Simulated scan of single mutants.
Amino acid sequence: MGSAFSCPVSPGLYEQFLLFGDSITEFSEKQDVGFGFAPALRYAYIRRLEVVNRGLSGYNTAMALKVIDRVIPKPCEARVRLMTIFFGANDSCFPTERSNQCVPLPDFKANLIKIVRHPAVTAHASRIVLITPPPIDERTQQAVDLTKGFALRRSAENTRRYAEAVCEVGKELGLPVLDLWSIFMLQAGWKPEAEKPLPGSLDEAPNEELARLLIDGLHLTPAGYQLMYDQFNVVLAQAYPTEVPTRLPYILPRWDDEGAWSNFPS
Results as ranks from 00 to 15, higher is better:
Tyr59Thr: 13
Cys93Tyr: 06
Val129Lys: 01
Leu82Trp: 00
Tyr43Pro: 00
Glu29Leu: 14
Ala78Arg: 00
Cys93Gly: 11
Arg98Asn: 15
Gly259Thr: 15
Glu77Ser: 11
Val121Gln: 00
Val51Cys: 02
Gly189Ile: 11
Tyr225His: 14
Ile72Ser: 01
Cys7Phe: 06
Ala4Met: 15
Ala211Trp: 00
Glu157Ala: 08
Tyr240His: 01
Ser3Asn: 15
Pro197Ile: 14
Gln187Glu: 15
Pro176Trp: 01
Gly55Asp: 03
Gly12Gln: 12
Lys171Ser: 15
Ile85Asn: 08
Ile46Phe: 01
Val80Ser: 04
Ile128Lys: 01
Arg98Val: 14
Cys93Met: 09
Phe5Met: 11
Ile128Asn: 01
Ser99Cys: 13
Val166Thr: 12
Val166Ser: 06
Ala151Ile: 13
Leu220Trp: 10
Leu248Met: 03
Val177Pro: 00
Leu220Lys: 08
Val129Asp: 01
Glu138Gln: 06
Arg154Thr: 10
Ser23Asp: 10
Arg81Ile: 03
Ser182Lys: 08
Pro245Tyr: 02
Pro11Thr: 12
Pro265Cys: 08
Glu193Asp: 15
Ala223Gln: 14
Phe27Gly: 05
Gly200Asn: 15
Leu56Asp: 10
Leu19Ser: 06
Thr159Glu: 01
Ser99Gln: 06
Arg81His: 11
Lys74Asp: 13
Gly21Arg: 05
Ile85Pro: 04
Leu218Lys: 12
